[in-house]
Each structure stands twice: as structure tokens, then as C-alpha cells.
């Protein structure tokens, strides 16, 4: 579903702040696979997601989604196939629009937006049904402003929005990092459920090794713009967090001093 080859991304090229975020990444994800991505700060996890989404254009390499070369196409064009949930709960929805308006925006993703009414009876019925499934009691608050919801509620809605129009690829960028533990748990469970029900190819960036091992079918570790670990199947199911840290040491041959990698 996703095929990334020879991907190079440099920020601030030619300036004193030049930073090579990704170095020749080769990486592919078959249809319906759920991949968790870990790595220390600045490893290039979010850059990889942004590159697939289209927010960052690469200096070299090629990105294919569903067999189509999208290397040069802008975010809005790719959005028909790619849905995203951001780390910041405020970033994924419009605070001053109502819940149903936000949902309607997401429902029209990938279609040509014309002058038909955005909120029709059919759509509202569908929204109500999807929100009922969520179990947060939001189905009765379709008219409320998005800004009135808590971060967790917004993140849960962002997940619903991501899958409303049916996407081939779901990109989750540390989408539980800004939430309190209980809400993070809820959103993670919801993620698991949604991914299974919708059978959508998923890339989930996370800071937590535990999360990375507990969720999904495959785990990829990035360091300094390179993939240094790629495990799945048996090998992965027998892994513990300690093993993961040990493997990281082996591959890199150095101590890990980044605490964030160890956060549970």
C-alpha cells in the first residue's frame, strides 16, 4: 500500500541550521498492516509521516501510495487516500465550527467539494450513528462547538473523522501523547478497534515502547534518519521492552540516554 524508496529529506538546506531528517529511507507497508514507529527525539518519525502525508516534500526518493506515485503531489490531493490524526488535539479539528460541521468536512474528504449542502439528513444520521458507537455521549451534541470538547474527546472525534470518508492509509502522529493516561488508554483502544473494523493500513508514531509492542503487527525503529530496526511476527511477539532497548544498543553500539524512549 505504501512504498517509500531512497527518501532523503533535508531541512534548511544550505543554511547553518541545515539538518538531514531522513537519509535514504527504504520502507514499504503491505495493505492492512498496522505498523508502530518508535525512535528518540529527532529520529525522523514525524518527518516520515509528514512526507507520506505531503506536508514535507523530499529532496530525493519516491513515495507511492496504492501503486500511484505521489512524491510531488500536495497534501490536499493525497488526502483522498491518506487520513491523519495529529499529536495536538486542537490541530485536528476546527474549534469554532460545530461537531457536525467538522464531521461534514471529514465526510467530504476525497470528493470534489461542490455547492451541495454540507450537512444533509443522511449525513447527520450517519454522524449520529458513528458517535453513538463511540460511547462518549457526543451523539446528542452535534450542534456544539468543537472548542467546547476536552482534548481526549477531540482526539476521539479526530479518529472518527479520519475514517469517515474511508481512507486507504491512516497516519497517527503520537496522537495520545497530549492526553491524560485514562483518555490515552481509551483513544488507543478506539484506535485498535477502528483499524480492525476499517481494515486500514496504519502507521502509528509513538514515544512509548510498550505501546509500540502492544499495538499493531510490526514495529519499526528510527534513529538519526535511518531505520535501525524492523520486526514483525514471532520475533516481535516474543520481544519485551527490555529486549527492544538491548537491540537498540546492539545496533547503535551506544548507551541510550534519552529518557523519553523509556517512558511507559
Amino acid at each position: 500500500m505504501i512504498r517509500v524508496s531512497g527518501l532523503d529529506i533535508v531541512f534548511g538546506k544550505g543554511t547553518p541550521l541545515e539538518k538531514q531528517a531522513l537519509r535514504g529511507i527504504d520502507f514499504s507497508v503491505p495493505e492492512h498492516e498496522f505498523v508502530s514507529v518508535i525512535g528518540s527525539n529527532g529520529a525522523g518519525k514525524s518527518t516520515l509521516l509528514s512526507a507520506i502525508a505531503g506536508d514535507v516534500l523530499p529532496q530525493a526518493g519516491r513515495i507511492e501510495i496504492g501503486g500511484v506515485d505521489v512524491t510531488r503531489s500536495p497534501t490536499a490531493i493525497r488526502a483522498g487516500k491518506v487520513a491523519r490524526v495529529f499529536q495536538d488535539p486542537l490541530a485536528g479539528s476546527c474549534g469554532t465550527l460545530s461537531i457536525e460541521e467538522n464531521l461534514a468536512l471529514a465526510a467530504a474528504r476525497g470528493t470534489k467539494r461542490m455547492l451541495g449542502l454540507a450537512i444533509t439528513r443522511n449525513r447527520r444520521e450517519m454522524f449520529r450513528q458513528r458517535l453513538t458507537e463511540l460511547g462518549l455521549g457526543l451523539e446528542g451534541r452535534l450542534d456544539d462547538q468543537m472548542g467546547l470538547l476536552s482534548g481526549g474527546q477531540r482526539q476521539a472525534l479526530a479518529l472518527v473523522m479520519a475514517t469517515l470518508a474511508g481512507a486507504d492509509v491512516l497516519l497517527l502522529d503520537e496522537h495520545t501523547a497530549a492526553l491524560d493516561p485514562a483518555m490515552a488508554e481509551f483513544v488507543l483502544d478506539l484506535t485498535q478497534r477502528v483499524v480492525q473494523e476499517r481494515k486500514v493500513t496504519t502507521l502509528m508514531v509513538t514515544h512509548s515502547m510498550r505501546q509500540a509492542l502492544d499495538h499493531g503487527d510490526r514495529t519499526v525503529m528510527l534513529h538519526e534518519g535511518r531505520i535501525i530496526l524492523d520486526v514483525s511476527g514471532h520475533e516481535r511477539s516474543n520481544l519485551s521492552v527490555e529486549d527492544l532497548i538491548q537491540m537498540f544498543r546492539d545496533v547503535r553500539g551506544q548507551e541510550i540516554d534519552d529518557d523519553s524512549l523509556l517512558i511507559e
Partner: peptide, 26 residues
């Protein structure tokens, strides 16, 4: 107009352009 799919996308552009683009809004 602002209640249409096109108009709603225009409102989202003003509120949160990054989100709008992620939702496929040019």
C-alpha cells in the same frame, strides 16, 4: 454558500488551514 461543502471548506481554511489541507481542502 457557506453551508455547502465548498463553503464549509472555506470556513475551515480560515479556522485551521493545516487541518483543512489534511481533510483534502485545497
Amino acid at each position: 454558500f457557506l453551508a455547502s461543502d465548498f463553503g464549509l471548506a472555506m470556513r475551515a481554511t480560515g479556522v485551521n488551514a493545516k487541518m483543512a489541507r489534511a481533510q483534502g481542502v485545497r
